[in-house]
Design a protein around this nucleic acid. Structure first.
Lengths: 147, 147
DNA sequence: CAACTTATTGCAACCAATTGCAATAAGGCT
DNA sequence: AGCCTTATTGCAATTGGTTGCAATAAGTTG
């Protein structure tokens, strides 16, 4: 289950950031979500616990947690999605037909990461890769069924 | 220079879509842009030619052209960016520190595409891959300098 | 544990982008 | 050339997300 809330505090403090109830609630909301959550879902969950917390704080905190690399963000179809940064890094295959998000193992991309590192001196975020395309079901028809 | 506006029309017609002056202007604006353009830049360029064209049309048409796979979209830092779908497909390395976008050759990812195809029966869009990470300059400092 | 510094929050205004709807016009048919 | 279907547009309202600023409170120091 990894190191959850415990060193969340120390991790923040070590960089001069502060641990606030808002951040804890938001972090928890993302952590305990089944899978990708929208800011609005996070807001709903947090709001249930503390109605005083504003939407702006949700957005800012999700952003902040991304920068801290404690959660991952994904933009698709005009919507942001967030997910806890797992122990087990993995990638996402996002279907542009139906929007389904499949996970895939990370080892696949290791070669790419290495080459890009050497050739471009660019360090790819291995734990935050989203590849877009068409899933098995949407390959047949050229139509989209999003929304 | 490839097949520009000529079969743009036929390509649309073949799927029951229509060729409108708006679409032509917007397509041209993206085509003739140096590199990635924001919807607002497209709007400005189009507006210069025809002030009657609304922002909604810009957004809708950019979306439409994406679905037609005539242009590519990239979301970063709360902003959409568009680029003409080149003959020569290529990928983007987007630095989450400074936001710089580097291009890289596509052959690199071919292995990944193949494996994902077999293993997940998922067809990755080879001409629309954006990988996030840190560029050579931003690797050193943990700070961000965006905006 | 009181005083202090400044990171963080809530508020409200703002901005980028999306959407419902009625008006318009592209392009097929005759 | 004129008619007709319906894809597309413009408008105005709405949504998702961001931002400036003053108020608040986390955590540090004495």
């Amino acid at each position: 289950m990894a190191r959850p809330a415990t060193d969340f505090a120390t991790r923040l403090h070590s960089q001069g950031f502060r641990l606030t109830p808002q951040r804890q609630l938001i972090m928890d909301a993302v952590r305990h979500a089944a899978r990708h959550v929208t800011p609005d879902e996070v807001y709903a969950a947090v709001h249930r616990q503390n109605p005083a917390i504003s939407r702006a704080t949700i957005y800012r905190t999700l952003d902040f947690l991304c920068e801290m690399r404690l959660i991952h963000a994904l933009y698709w179809g005009g919507q942001m999605y967030y997910e806890i940064a797992a122990e087990q890094p993995h990638h996402h295959l996002v279907c542009r037909g139906c929007g389904v998000m499949v996970e895939c193992a990370p080892d696949l991309l290791q070669i790419v990461v290495d080459v890009v590192e050497k050739k471009h001196r660019f360090t790819i975020d291995m734990d935050h890769v989203a590849l877009f395309g068409l899933c098995r079901h949407c390959r047949g028809q050229g139509k989209k069924s999003k929304k």
